[in-house]
Simulated assay, not measured.
Amino acid sequence: MRIVPENLADQATLTCAPTPLAEQPVTHLQDLRRQRMMRTVNAAEHVVSATWGAPQRISCIGLFGHNMRKSNARWRVELFSDDAWTNSVYDSSVIPMTVVKGFRALTWRVDTWRATIFSDRGSAFSVLWLEESFAIQSLRITLSDTANPEGYLEAYRLLAGLHWQPSRGPAFSATLQVNDPTELTATAGGTLAAVSRGAPTRKLSMELRWMTRDADARRLVEMLTNQGKRKQMLVSLFPGANTGEEIDHNILGRISDSPQIAIIHPQRARAKLTFTEG
Rank of each mutant, 00 (worst) to 15 (best):
G244N: 07
I255V: 12
R230C: 04
I251L: 15
V221W: 13
T225E: 15
M223W: 10
D257L: 05
F238L: 05
R219K: 08
L204S: 00
A241F: 09
N226S: 13
K231A: 15
N250K: 02
L252R: 06
E245A: 05
R254S: 15
A215T: 08
V221I: 11
I255H: 06
Q227H: 10
E222K: 08
T212K: 04
R213S: 15
N226A: 11
R219L: 04
K229M: 13
A241R: 05
M206W: 03
V221L: 14
E245G: 00
N242W: 03
L208D: 01
W210S: 14
S205V: 03
D248N: 11
L234G: 02
E245K: 06
E207D: 04
L208M: 02
L252N: 06
R254H: 12
Q232E: 08
A217C: 07
F238A: 03
D257R: 14
S236L: 01
E245H: 02
I247R: 12
T225A: 13
R213Y: 09
P239I: 10
I251T: 10
K231E: 09
R209Y: 00
N242Y: 02
M233V: 14
I247W: 11
L234F: 04
A241E: 13
T212Y: 05
D248P: 07
N250H: 04
Q227R: 13
L234W: 02
D257H: 05
E207N: 07
R219T: 13
L204R: 01
L208K: 01
T243K: 09
R254E: 08
D216H: 12
Q227F: 10
S256P: 04
L204N: 01
E245T: 09
K229I: 09
D248T: 13
M206G: 07
R213D: 13
Q232I: 04
R230A: 12
L220F: 12
N242V: 02
S205G: 09
M206K: 03
G240K: 09
M211W: 02
H249R: 14
S236M: 08
G240N: 03
E245D: 07
E245P: 01
R218Y: 08
W210L: 09
R230S: 14
L237P: 02
W210Y: 13
L252S: 07
L224A: 10
R254I: 08
T243S: 09
A241W: 15
L220E: 15
D248Y: 10
I255W: 04
A241D: 14
G228Y: 05
M223E: 03
I247K: 09
D216L: 11
S256I: 00
Q232S: 11
L252H: 11
N226G: 10
I251K: 07
F238D: 01
K229F: 09
R219F: 05
R209F: 00
R254P: 06
L224P: 01
V235R: 05
R254W: 15
R218V: 10
D248S: 14
L220A: 15
P239E: 10
L252C: 11
L220S: 15
D257T: 14
V221S: 12
R213F: 12
A215N: 12
N250V: 03
K229T: 10
R209I: 01
M206T: 00
M206E: 00
R254Y: 13
M211R: 04
R230T: 11
E246R: 07
F238Q: 00
V235A: 11
H249Q: 07
M211A: 06
M211S: 06
L204F: 00
Q232R: 14
S236K: 06
Q232A: 13
M233G: 12
M223T: 13
G244L: 08
N226V: 15
M233E: 09
